[in-house]
Design a protein around this nucleic acid. Structure first.
Lengths: 189, 189
DNA sequence: ATCTAGTCTTAAACTATCTTAATATTTTAC
DNA sequence: GTAAAATATTAAGATAGTTTAAGACTAGAT
C-alpha cells in the first residue's frame, strides 16, 4: 500500500522499480506535525529536505528589528527547506513551521547524497525539480521589480488559491514585502 | 588545445573522459558577438542555452509601457538564457544582448535533451547548476522584500564588482527595480 | 463561556520613491 | 572631430508605502 503522495511526485519525472521504491522509502522518515510546529529555526544547521504529504507550511526570515519576511508557502505535493543552508550545510536563514496539522516526509542531507550515487535517476529528478524551482523564482524576481504591489497581490491570490484559507493577511503581506496596514488599504478597492 | 572556459566550468562538478569531451564539444556552437548584439528577443521561442566564454550580457524584460527590468547579468563563466522559455519551448519573456564584444557557447535545446540521455553525468552537472541558481534567486527574493533599496544597491556592487565597469546606472536601476533618478539620489550619500 | 492575545482595519503624519522637466555629461555615428 | 543621441544628475511636486495609535474582530487557552 505504497500510496504516498511523494511517490506520485517522484513519478512525475522518473520511473522507479520496486526495489528502488523500497530503498527510497527506507531513507525517508514520515513525520506528523501539529499546527504551528516548527521544524527548522533560524541559526540551526538544516539537515533535512521536506516533502508535504498533506497540510501546509511557511518558510520565513526574521531580521534584527523583528520584521518577518515570508519566502515561501508549501502545500501538499511541494518540497520545502532552506535550500542554501541544506545544500551547503550552513546555518539556516529561514525558519519553517506548519500552518495547520500536517504530514511531511523528511529526507536527510547525507542520505540524499548517497541516493544520488545509488540511484542516479534521482539526479534527473532533482535536476528537473531545481530547474522548475529556479524558473519560478526567476519569474517572481521579475514580478517583484516590475509589478505594483496591487498587481503582485492579485497574482498571488490567483496563483495560490489553495493557500488563502490557511494563511493570514499578515503572512500575505510579509510575502509581498509590505505592511499588513498597506495590504489592507489595497484590498479596500 | 581544448582550453575552453566551458570545460573548466563543467569540471567543477563532474569529470569527463576524452570521448565525452569530444562529444560535448561537438554539440556546442561557438559564437563571437559584437557589442550590443542581441541573441534572444522577447516573443521568440528560445532554442539555446548560452555559456559566456568571455565578455558580458544582460537579460531583461520590457513591459507594455516600455519600462525595462533587468533580470540578470552574465559575465565570463556564467550560463544565461530565458530558462522558462528554453525549458518549456515557449515564447521568451526576456531579451538578451551583449554589453561588449563577447564569445559564447550555444547549447541547443534538443541536443541538451539528448546529452542527458547519452552522458547521464550531465544530469548531475545541471542538477547542481540549477540548485545553485535556485539558491541565488531565493536569496535575491528575500533581499528584495526585506532590504531597503540602498542596502540592495550596496549589496549589488559588492557582489558583482566585475560588472560595474561594463554596465550603466540605468541598467543597475532596472535590476534593482527603481528609477535611474532615484538610484542617483541614493548614490549622493 | 470568558479572558487574552493576536489580527484586521482605519486614519493621520511621515518617508520613500516616482514623474516630469531642465541641465550637464558621455557615447555613438558619421 | 563634430553633431546627435543616449545617459546621468538635480530639483519640485505627486503618489506609494510606513509608522503609530486606536478600536473592532477573531482564535486559542483556560
Amino acid at each position: 500500500m505504497n500510496d504516498y503522495q511523494i511517490l506520485k511526485n517522484i513519478e512525475k519525472h522518473i520511473t522507479l522499480n520496486d526495489l528502488e521504491i523500497d530503498h527510497f522509502l527506507s531513507v525517508l522518515k514520515l513525520k506528523d506535525l501539529d499546527k504551528k510546529e516548527r521544524i527548522l529555526s533560524q541559526g540551526q544547521t538544516c539537515k533535512k529536505l521536506y516533502f508535504v504529504e498533506f497540510g501546509s507550511l511557511r518558510a520565513y526570515n526574521m531580521n534584527e528589528e523583528g520584521k518577518e519576511s515570508t519566502i515561501m508557502f508549501a502545500v501538499q505535493d511541494w518540497w520545502i527547506t532552506d535550500m542554501d543552508a541544506f545544500v551547503h550545510q550552513k546555518p539556516a536563514v529561514l525558519s519553517i513551521e506548519t500552518l495547520e496539522a500536517s504530514r511531511v516526509m523528511e529526507l536527510d542531507f547525507q542520505k540524499l547524497e548517497e541516493l544520488y550515487i545509488k540511484i542516479p535517476k534521482f539526479e534527473r529528478f532533482f535536476r528537473i525539480l531545481f530547474q522548475n524551482a529556479y524558473i519560478r523564482e526567476q519569474v517572481r524576481a521579475l514580478e517583484n521589480i516590475s509589478f505594483t504591489t496591487e498587481q503582485r497581490y492579485l497574482r498571488f491570490i490567483k496563483k495560490y488559491p489553495q493557500m488563502l484559507p490557511k494563511i493570514t493577511q499578515k503572512q500575505i503581506a510579509s510575502y509581498l514585502g509590505v505592511t499588513p496596514e498597506f495590504l489592507s488599504s489595497i484590498k479596500k478597492k
